[in-house]
Design a protein around this nucleic acid. Sequence first.
DNA 1: GACCCGTCTGAATCTAACC
DNA 2: GGGTTAGATTCAGACGGGT
Lengths: 371, 371
Amino acid sequence: MTSRHKSCPPLPAELRLDRILHGECVEVMRGLPEGSIDCIFADPPYNLQLRGELRRPDESVVDGVDDAWDKFSDYGAYDSFCRDWLSEARRLLHKDGTIWVIGSYHNIFRLGTILQDLGFWILNDIVWRKANPMPNFRGRRFTNAHETLIWAARSPESRYRFNYQAMKALNDDLQMRSDWYLPLCTGHERLRNEHGLKLHPTQKPESLLHRVILASTNAEDVVLDPFCGTGTTPAVAKRLGRHYIAIERHPDYFRAALARLALVECLPSDQLAVTPARREQPRIPFGTFVENGALPAGTILSDRQGRLKACVAPDGTLVAGKQRGSIHKMGALLTSAPSCNGWTFWYFERDGKQVQLDVLRQESHAARQVS
Amino acid sequence: MTSRHKSCPPLPAELRLDRILHGECVEVMRGLPEGSIDCIFADPPYNLQLRGELRRPDESVVDGVDDAWDKFSDYGAYDSFCRDWLSEARRLLHKDGTIWVIGSYHNIFRLGTILQDLGFWILNDIVWRKANPMPNFRGRRFTNAHETLIWAARSPESRYRFNYQAMKALNDDLQMRSDWYLPLCTGHERLRNEHGLKLHPTQKPESLLHRVILASTNAEDVVLDPFCGTGTTPAVAKRLGRHYIAIERHPDYFRAALARLALVECLPSDQLAVTPARREQPRIPFGTFVENGALPAGTILSDRQGRLKACVAPDGTLVAGKQRGSIHKMGALLTSAPSCNGWTFWYFERDGKQVQLDVLRQESHAARQVS
DNA sequence: GACCCGTCTGAATCTAACC
DNA sequence: GGGTTAGATTCAGACGGGT
C-alpha cells in the first residue's frame, strides 16, 4: 500500500487529529475532509429486537441491551441509517483505506449487503469466537458464541494495508485465520460507574481492537471510530502509536472516553511489539467421531475385558439396555463406580483388534494443526 | 413443536418422498405442495467475483467487470435469483419448519438480508470452522478458514424443532455453541470421477449435515435440498431415518447422487434414537405420589436450605400458612419469584437425608422403562 | 499466600401444553 | 385463539470471603 502520508497532498487544516468529538456520527463525519482516514472501525447499534425480560435458570434477571439507541422501527429504518453513515465513511476513507464493521446475526447481513452495494470490496469476514459467551438459558438455540466482523477495502482497486507478517507472528508463525478466539471485556478492563454497574452495555475488549489495528494500519495512520462508546478504539490506537478521531453522541460515554484516553500512553516505538496469542485448549467431544464416521452410530463399544457392551447413538451418547448417557456416565453406571473416564474405559474394534477410545483422540490431536 | 405429521392433513398425493429430482430448482419446487417440508438445507451457488469472470445464476457470463453498472447488475441478478428460490422454499416449508443456508462472505450477506426481508426469523448464524482450510497463498488477507450457515424459522411464531439435549450430548454435555469445528470433505468421502478428479468443487462433509439434521429434525421428517449436488444431504438424511427430496440440475451431479443414494442404508430404528428432550417425556402429576403413598398427605417439604416449609395436602397441593397451591406456584409464592420449578425446588426427607422431589419423578421414569 | 467455595455476569431476537 | 399454568433451563471467568 502506498500510505496516505506519501501519496496524498498534505492534510487539510481542518483535520485535527487525536480527538474525541461529541455529536451525531453522520453530522460530525460531514465536517471531516474527504479521503483523510486510513482505517475505520465501526461498532454500530445491532437492532437486537429483544422482546421481553430474560431470566437465568436461577431466576436472576439478565441485564440486556434495552437502550433507545438500539431500537429501530423496522429493517428499512435500520438500512437507511446504515446507508447514511457508511456512505459518509466511504467518502472519508483514503482510496486505499479499509473499514471494519462488527455485528451479530441481527444486523451483520444488512451491513454486509450495504457495504457491497456501496462499492466497498470485502476482504474477509472475521469471526470473533467468544471464550466466555452467555449461555442460551432456555435451551432453544445454539449458544450464540460469536460475533462477526467484516473487513472491506474502499474499492476493489484499493491497494490496502495488511500486516501479514505481524499477524503470522501473533499466531505462533502460522497464518492468521479468519476465526479469532478472544475473551469478552470483563474484570478491571470493563468500565463501571460509581455504583459498580457497567457503564456501557457492549464495551469491546481491547484485545480485539489490538488485532484489528495491528493487522490493517501502520504507525501514524489515522483511525476513525464513528461509534466509539467508551473509547476502546481510540485507546488502543493511541497506545499503538496511531492517530485517532472518534465520535460519540451519548454524553456519559463521551465523558468516559475522554477520561479514559487521558490515562493512555503511547508505547515507546521500540515496544510496539506483538502480544502473544492465547491458544485454546483443544477439547474434542466424543460426538465428533460419530459425526465424522470414525465411530458411526450403531458401533458397539466394550470394556477392556469385553464383558460390558454399549451401542453408539447418533448424538454421541451410549446406550445399554434402557440406559443412555455419555461415555463417562455409562462407564460409571455399568461398573457402579462414582465416576469413570470413558476415553480410557471403552474399546472399539479396528482391524480385528480392540482399540482404546482414547487412541482416536490422540490421533486427532496429532492431526490437528491449529486449535 | 407439534410435528407436521400430527397437526396437518395427510400429505397430498403428489408429494412422493425419498427421491432425487432432475431439473431447475425453482421449477421443480413449484411442483411440490405448500407446507409439506419440515426442514430445508440449501447450498446455493456462490457465483460471485470469481477469477475476473462473473457469471449470472443462469451461467451466462457477465462482461465488463470494471463497469460499476455491471457489478450492481450482478448483485441484483444474484439477489433476484435468491429471492425466487427462497420464496418457493418458504412456501414449501411447514409453518413450524426451519431452513439452513450456507455461504461465504461473497454471498452470505445477500442471503441473510433476503431471508429477513421475506419474513424468515433467524435463529442462529453458525460458523463452520474448517479444520484444514486452504491457506492464503498471496499473504494479502487472513486465511479464509470458515463458512457461515444461517438457521432460520419460517416465521417468528414458528414452534420449530431443536434437539437441544442431543446437541448437548454431542458436545460432551455442554451446550452446543454457534462455532463448529469440522474437517473438509476429503479422502474416501470425496466423490471422484474416472480420472481421480473431484466430481464436485464444493462437496460438503457428511459430518456437517449429520449435525444439521440431527439438530433440527425428527426421524421421519421430510428434508429438502434444492441444490443437492452429489447428494450429501439426502445421503445423511436417509442414513438418519429422515425422508428426503433433493433437486439437482447438473446431469453429472444428478447421476452421482443417484448412485450414491443407492448404497446408503438407513440405521436400524433402535439405533436412531438420541437423548430425548425432557419436555417430551411423559408427564407425571405430583398428585400421583400422594395417591400412591410415596409422599403421603401431611408430609413436610422444605427448600434446599431448609428455610421454607410446606405441607402436602391430599389433593397434591402444598399448604403454607394461609396459602395453598401447586408445588410450582407455592415455590414461586414463597420466594417472590415470578415462577418456579417445584420439582427441583422442594425437598423431602428420606433415610435422614434431604432428597429433591425430582428424584421421585426420575425413579418413576426409570421404573416405567423397565416395565 | 494458597485454595476452595459461593456469587455474579455477559450484544439474547430464549417455552409450550392445556383449558 | 387467548389466557393460564406446568415446568424446563447455564458456562466461563472474575471476584470476594473464609479456611
